[in-house]
Design a protein around this nucleic acid. Sequence first.
DNA 1: ATCTGCCGGTCGACAGCGTCCACGGCGCCA
DNA 2: TGGCGCCGTGGACGCTGTCGACCGGCAGAT
Lengths: 152, 152
Amino acid sequence: MDAVDRQIIAALRVNGRATYADLGRQVGLSASAVHERVGKLESTGVITGYHAVVEPTAVGLGVTALVGIVPTDTGDNEEIAEALAELPEVESCYAVAGDEAFVVKVRVPTVDELERTLGRLRRIDGVARTRTTVVLSTRFEGRPNNAEVAPG
Amino acid sequence: MDAVDRQIIAALRVNGRATYADLGRQVGLSASAVHERVGKLESTGVITGYHAVVEPTAVGLGVTALVGIVPTDTGDNEEIAEALAELPEVESCYAVAGDEAFVVKVRVPTVDELERTLGRLRRIDGVARTRTTVVLSTRFEGRPNNAEVAPG
DNA sequence: ATCTGCCGGTCGACAGCGTCCACGGCGCCA
DNA sequence: TGGCGCCGTGGACGCTGTCGACCGGCAGAT
């Protein structure tokens, strides 16, 4: 992976629908060469996908929370992670150091639904309790740190 | 916004580079009609953008942390949020209920760099202290809750 | 009832793009 | 030196993006 790959990555993180021709013009290669490079970045797992980002409230997901997951003494983290992945409202899942084994971000339509989700989380085998931080607003999210990837 | 819009949104959240023709075949409209709808979803801010998702470690961002920001008694949340937004390593920023005013997710290359970032966070006017949760691994992230958006 | 305007659709033209492949240049190694 | 792998260009061809003309359905006004 060289500086040109990094430029391509940075550009696609900003605009995931950029055409190969656009990218080529940006990095000084032909569209075919860019296509080849992007294909390689995808097949090697550097680029894992392209996604539209949607304003959550516009699609009815008006409640966001960060939930710490505290395991039981005998809980198995792999199994807990698998169970967390089964819940569609769990958008992100981080294994963390500390009392909590995981912090998850959930998005649901209402506070009632959040309560139900918390119940579901607590019913996972190996989960002792949860610690909920209600998000009042999402100031920004998923912003790529392109300063490190393609400096300049 | 109707059920077809929701289908389009769901499909674009899965594959942000889907062609209008692909989407049209999925929802039973012509490419032009889909293009028109997508344009409207973009211009009304429902779809805020399209982004490549990149494996952080592949681009040198091997350290992730969730950092709670505890404000001083006189700290101004708007000013803190603006300062947080100035730091490229801060990928996400949530205003939260509780002791902390914000929780931010930071991604940096090394633990040394994390320490520097924490210093920068603590030096923001209005920030009393930070509480860091080191992420050991990102199990998954930014997964769209399409079950709510386009059930089916 | 009819008429009008709006909305959302199809269709087609045309420039541009995506995909694939042939080919060439360059660097490295035996 | 020659051979190989890598990475690039360029071209062919089907597909797509963009735009505009046109149409039909629906709601509201007369």
